[in-house]
């Protein structure tokens, strides 16, 4: 049970490269904080600094109110799940899980009780006598989880733990991690580049870009009010449609509501588009003609890839669609579903 506080944390490597450029995040007790961003945005570096695997160049990191900058990973009382699981290949699953407990001098019967208890929670009991190489990817992932939770640490750190699993297993484990984290009530920091994982897992979502925090907040708040074009195009799949405004006007627009401020970009989500003349009753919104260039039916929904308004947009329609490549469609987005961004990419 602990809070994690980062205050203006920076990481400057020996060559002068600044990987993390002053990040402040306060993670409340028992919360799951997800750091999401493209590769190279500094999210993993930040996680490794919390773990104590990287030194902190400037700023402070505190766990449970105590500054841990100068404390090594051994004494921080954290547990980490690595992307490649980092299971000890020469130890059985049991010993993998018991290793951290034994290192802390726990009596043998207590170790046994804890390991077996955790194995039961994660349904690993039948695997305890096996070695990591005899396990499937999903099983290894569970063992890595088990090794983390058996210690009952103050903080869990996850470094893209699901990226080596296939899509189906990933979805399953995502749900499981969430419920496990809730049940155990351990403060967690989770790094991913997958926006779906980020959206579904996070209590606190931190979108990072180029070593800086782009936006921090509840996942749905971020989804509904992205602070910048970067966040808008990163969160949501497919990403938000962004079209350029020239002098407050949009190319090919039939109707365009009053542009907020001096916005240079207008955005709307693929799922907020209405196709055809149905939306005509509401005149307060964006209406434009789109040329369909591609149709992707995925079953429950279909995506239309169109050229419109001097750019490319994606339109999501429910179920099957009769639309063909080459069709011309009127697209409508309601006023309240439109987003405006200034020339610096920030929301206006």
């Amino acid at each position: 049970m602990a809070t994690v506080d980062l205050k203006d944390v920076r990481k400057i490597y020996a060559g002068g490269v600044e990987a993390v450029k002053g990040v402040s995040i306060a993670i409340p007790d028992k919360a799951l904080c997800v750091l999401v961003g493209p590769s190279g945005c500094g999210k993993s570096t930040l996680l490794r600094m919390i773990a104590g695997l990287e030194t902190i160049s400037a700023g402070t990191c505190s766990i449970d109110g105590k500054v841990v900058n100068s404390i090594g990973p051994t004494e921080r009382d954290i547990a980490m799940v690595f992307q490649n699981y980092a299971l000890y290949p020469h130890m059985k699953v049991y010993d993998n899980m018991a290793y951290g407990l034994r290192n802390r001098g726990m009596p043998k019967d207590e170790v046994d009780k804890r390991v077996r208890g955790t194995a039961q929670t994660l349904e690993l009991e039948h695997l305890l006598e096996r070695r990591p190489r005899e396990l499937s990817g999903g099983q290894r992932q569970r063992v890595a989880m088990g090794r983390a939770i058996v210690r009952n640490p103050k903080v869990f750190l996850f470094d893209e733990p699901l990226s080596n699993l296939d899509a189906k297993l990933r979805g399953q484990m995502r749900v499981e991690i969430k419920s496990l984290q809730r049940k155990l009530g351990v403060t967690s920091v989770y790094v991913t580049h997958d926006q779906l994982e980020a959206m579904t897992l996070a209590d606190v979502l931190v979108v990072m870009n180029a070593g800086l925090v782009e936006q921090l907040g509840a996942p749905l708040d971020i989804y509904e009010k992205p602070a910048s074009t970067f966040v808008a195009s990163f969160i949501g799949a497919p990403p938000m449609n962004l079209l350029p405004l020239r002098g407050g006007q949009l190319e090919d627009a039939i109707t365009l509501p009053t542009v907020t401020g001096n916005a240079t970009t207008i955005g709307f989500r693929p799922e907020d588009c209405e196709v055809g003349a149905d939306g005509a009753t509401s005149s307060d919104g964006l209406r434009l003609m789109a040329n369909v260039e591609g149709v992707e039916p995925v079953g429950a929904e279909s995506f239309l890839y169109c050229a419109a308004g001097g750019g490319k947009i994606v339109v999501r329609v429910a179920g099957r669609t009769e639309v063909q490549v080459g069709d011309q469609l009127p697209i409508f987005a309601r006023r309240e579903k439109l987003h405006f961004f200034g020339s610096d990419g920030k929301r206006v």
């Binding site: 990973p73 921080r76 980092a86 000890y88 290192n103």
Partner: peptide, 18 residues
């Protein structure tokens, strides 16, 4: 030897000798 194994062991409370 993967670096992450050493890191995992460090997080697991093992000192350098151990």
């Amino acid at each position: 030897i993967p670096k992450t194994l050493i890191e995992a062991a460090a997080i697991d409370g093992a000192g350098e000798n151990k």
